[in-house]
Amino acid sequence: MSKIGIFNWHRLFKTDKFYLLVCASSLFVLIILFAITVFLLFSAMPALESSQTGLLGISWYKSSEANNILDFCLPLVFSTILSSLLALVIALPVSIGVALFITFYAPPKLAAIASWVIDILASIPSIVYGLWGIFVLCPFLNVFTGNLISSPPRVLFTLSIVLAVMIIPIITSIIRDIYTGTPHLDIEAAYGLGATKWEMIRLSVLPYGAQGAMSAAMLGLGRALGETMAVLIILSPGRSYSFNIFGVSSHQTIAGNIAAQFPEANSLGVSLLTVTGLVLFIITFLVNWAAKKIAKSGVANV
């Protein structure tokens, strides 16, 4: 029939109103996402168009001693990625371990408890993680780092640990579902060849779940990239490209910066923060897109 664009307009007019309603609803989702991009861009325009002198009117931009917007955003991007990657490096092995524990090693009751532990960890709001980080984890780490670094240790290392605890539930639940679906035949095949339990896992489970694990890791990474409250409470902010994760006041993430500077920001300031927000949006989008790509390619290989 007459097809214009993605709709079959002829059929559309003949069909019932409910179809129109649900179509409209889907279009609305499109519109919302479009609106998000448009409004953010619109809000970011003044800062993007402003000259360096205009930007110097923002007190915290001035004290950051940045030469232009790019120079302002890059240390934030660096710290955001560094903290999230470090969190992932800590979280991924633990997540895989817990997933294996639940699926293969634990007796049924213990497996139920472990699942329950993961579910509750996933429910904890990020503000509580922030409070726990500064009131429990910092003093705890202080015992070891006491005279070596700043006290309390409000540094990237501590933040990454808290971020790791936050993303472990996400990664674990996805990987656990994947590992539960490992083909029984592969498992039995490995046992049949005389493998020990760990060798069976190494042979059958890990390769099978590799792609899914990578996809889950990217999703966890996306979550860590956008975390705000824990950063706001725990991290002492600074600007540098330092890899010293124990150095105080050397890092600040994009989300933490937005939350910290927003109360003091005039309209140009909010505009500049929106620019950084857009950068964060793009980074998270790329990470999530990569996760989807990896997951899809994994499915295709089976």
């Binding site: 937005i258 857009l278 990470v287 897109w289 989807k292």
Partner: peptide, 30 residues
């Protein structure tokens, strides 16, 4: 339409919460 919407839903699920806050703020500020 459905494949577009599916992709967009995935994108939307990745929006960081602070960016969603900025969006709502800028919409009402406008």
């Amino acid at each position: 339409l459905s494949s577009i919407v599916n992709t967009l839903v995935d994108i939307m699920s990745g929006v960081p919460s602070i960016v969603a806050g900025l969006f709502a703020y800028s919409l009402f500020a406008l």
